[in-house]
Each structure stands twice: as structure tokens, then as C-alpha cells.
Amino acid sequence: MNIIETKGLEKIFQAESVETIALRNINFDVKEGDFVAVMGPSGCGKTTLLNILGMIDSWNSGSYMLLGHDIAKLKEKQRTNLRKNHIGFVFQNFNLIEELTVYENIELPLQYLGWKKKERHQRVTELLEKMKIAHRGNLFPLQLSGGQQQRVAVARAVVANPPLILADEPTGNLDSQHGEEVMNLLDTLNKEGTTIIMVTHSQRDASYSRRIVHLFDGQIINENLNKLH
């Protein structure tokens, strides 16, 4: 079953009098449990596509169905609800909130979902242990190494058990050892049933995926199954 379907998706950036077409005619489907890597050179529109899929950016034309919902027809509040219940995000620069502790960062999505304090505590503690950062729960993000920060970000992305994870260059700011740790985490999640769409530059990271989509100048030029998988 497709959880994502886009048809003729187009995104145009308008800056002063200059118009830049970031995405054109994107027809893109993702099946439940899939692990898709989106690759391409800088500025080809990878992150823009991911942001649109995550409903944190708008598009100009074309349609986008997520989990059977026609996103264009949803109000902002409905999009927020859909997002917080079904999508987890992992960013290259982690995007942790510096003023919150590790524990509080991971807890945040659950707060927005209205979980009770006790349930939140149980879930966050469980996840901290699973991610091997239990002893760092009270530290602030800036007191951690990059790898540890990204593990916190992944923990935050999966804390509410979302069926879909969108990862934007999750290892881009990490050394190879820490990068591998994060990719193993994502791989495990995928094996447990989570659908993952990952934007990356790295062939090695892409090798974890089941399918690779190549973007160039805002268009999908090539799509193939990962033979290594």
C-alpha cells in the first residue's frame, strides 16, 4: 500500500524578480515499510521535496496524498495533527532545542500529542536506554558530541512511534563512526516496520536503503532498487 503518492508536484521559489523552479513534475510513490534514499547534487531540490512531504513547506501545483489524505485539501491544523501523529524528522544539523535538556527534547513530541506525564516518562526513559544515552538525559544538547546529538534527534523522531521517518542528511555533520551508528539505528527502525525517506549525498548511507531516487535540477531522472539490499 502506498503511504505517499505525488503527481506532477511543482515548487517555484520567487525571490524579487527571479523565479527558480525547485521541483518539476515529481511523480513519486512510497510503499509502507519502504526505505527510500533521495540522492542528487546540492541544490537539486532534495530537501525541498522532503520538506513538502513532511508538510513543512508548500508547493505550487500537483497533488500530494499522504496516508490517503489529500494534503492540499487539509487545513493547517489538520496537517499539524497528521504530522505529529505520523511523521518523525531527523535533520543534518540535528535541530535540537538548545534550551531544553536531552530528556525534554525527546519528550516534546509527546507533550504536543497530549500524553500523560507518567506515560511520557516511561516512553522517554525506555528510549534513552535503547539509544544508550540514559545517563545523559539531564544534559543540554551543546554538552554532547555530534553523534550523541543525532542519536537524541533520532530518539525524538521515533518517540511517538511514527509510521514514517523523514531524514535529511542524517549523517552529514558526523564522522564515519558516528554516522554508521545513526544509519544502523535507522536500519533497525526500518526492519521494525517504519517507512523511511532519507535525503543524502553519501553512497554509503544510500546503501542502507531499498530504493534510490536520483534528482537533478528538480526532476526525478532515475529510480532504481538497491541491489545490495
Binding site: I56, K77, N95, P109
Partner: peptide
Amino acid sequence: TREIGIRRVLGGSEKQ
């Protein structure tokens, strides 16, 4: 702004 962006991504509503 950025923090607000992150919170939006994580499901924070406009009202919240």
C-alpha cells in the same frame, strides 16, 4: 524563529 520551526515540525500547534 528556528526553535519555533522545530517545534512546529514536532507537532506544536499555532495556538500552543
